[in-house]
Design a protein around this nucleic acid. Structure first.
Lengths: 238, 238
DNA sequence: GCGGCACTGTGACGGCCATCACCGCGACTA
DNA sequence: TAGTCGCGGTGATGGCCGTCACAGTGCCGC
């Protein structure tokens, strides 16, 4: 069976390798089985759009693999990226549970496989399984936390340098440290980073140059090594 | 029975005048009764603090009356106000359900009566009443929406004028329109507005003067009349 | 009244950074 | 191999607005 765009379709939630460790993992088995029967799986190529800001909520997407950019944009084309979602995350949850329109736009930036659950099915399932509703609430709480964190980097920093430093430190926090260095692969373009921190593309380029000159970090292709976390922290504190 | 600070303590949730129209209103009666037995009511004066950012989550506060400022601040004293909560809202929900520390600080800016429910009691109640968990999820979804909206005004606007206009339009959206004018009472100081939109106090003052000169709005004491919504919208669009 | 305090209003200055413009580079296509 | 396109890098310029400083105003308690 072939999906459009030449990607293999996975058959269901159950075959998703990350099913175990996520949202509904530790529900009682009957509930999980019931849930597993609902979703429809699909593959999305780079550039595809899962949903658009303002669109009425159709349901949730559970990411099995790939990366999805969550952003909001204004009439005149400026856009603000909130975060990049990865495998295991559930997208569209707030809009789906409240019944309001999607508040963000979800664009695929790396080929993605996802399960879709329609709003009606999802709500029905939640009403029947109270424990699942609690899990959803927790998930929403986490999402809120992320939003607030992003808010801090955008709103509390006066200088662009501070914002970028905050952004990089947030990134570093999600990766393991090794000999005082944090190594990570950064798939975002300068343009996208700029949209995440509310700055211009050129400024990001200049700041990267600056940070490299100060030996805070090092860039080889798409891998980025943070050599001096304390240095970045001092930029934030300043 | 007297509270500290000379305010009357209300006995419980049940005596709160806004119980009806909020979070747990349309649960089955036995659930409501059970819930009503849990919380402890208290009165808080202006300047009191319900909880502080970073503090581990003790539980939720349900506002019966008053106003509470939700903010986050950085080490060097700058602070960012996310929103002002009013009666009927539930504070500390995300932190309480996830078990993470409070992500914001809640300061009372107008004398407030609130019910407190401890985290353990609250979680216990949710586990026993699945419908309530769903309501909580919806509430969290709403809160998330608000956060995203705030994010847009801060992050998507390049000029301070645009941010202030966006802020005022958001305010106007929550009030009734009358003969093309929106009248509302604004309890915030310029300083606080500045902290909401990420600008300096002086800039806010100057922009208000500017908007008044352009006859977009009119200020009498603490009441503010938006006379020309289209004008503000054109500032946002620009 | 009078001092103190919180808030508003206003001028001057300077720095940060958005914007524009242009170049180099690698990848991919024809 | 030339052409195009997305991306990164860099200089010049100008304006917004943050900061500092201080004056004016209303409100409070004493």
């Amino acid at each position: 069976m072939r999906a459009p765009y030449g990607l293999e379709i996975i058959e269901s939630c159950l075959s998703c390798p990350h099913r175990e460790d996520r949202l509904f993992c530790n529900l009682p088995p009957p509930a999980v089985q019931k849930l597993a029967a609902i979703p429809s799986a699909a593959a999305y190529p780079k550039g595809a759009t899962l949903f658009v800001e303002g669109q009425s909520a159709r349901g949730v997407f559970i990411l099995c693999s790939g990366k999805v950019k969550l952003s909001t944009s204004s009439a005149d084309g400026k856009s603000l990226i909130l975060r990049i979602s990865e495998q295991g995350e559930v997208l569209g949850l707030p809009a789906t549970v409240t019944g309001k329109p999607y508040e963000l736009t979800a664009d695929v930036i790396e080929p993605t496989q996802a399960n879709f659950i329609s709003r009606t099915d999802f709500l029905l399932f939640l009403r029947e399984h109270g424990e699942a509703a609690l899990r959803v609430a927790q998930q929403l709480g986490e999402t809120y936390h992320l939003a607030i964190a992003e808010m801090r980097t955008i709103g509390l920093s006066r200088s662009a340098a501070e914002k970028l430093a905050r952004f990089l430190l947030d990134l570093a926090a999600n990766h393991d440290e090794e000999k005082g260095e944090v190594k990570l692969t950064l798939t975002l373009t300068h343009e996208e980073i700029a949209q995440m921190i509310g700055a211009s593309r050129e400024t990001v380029t200049r700041l990267f140059a600056d940070f490299k000159k100060k030996d805070f970090l090092q860039v080889k292709g798409s891998t980025l090594i943070i050599r001096n976390k304390a240095g970045l922290e001092s930029v934030v504190a300043a």
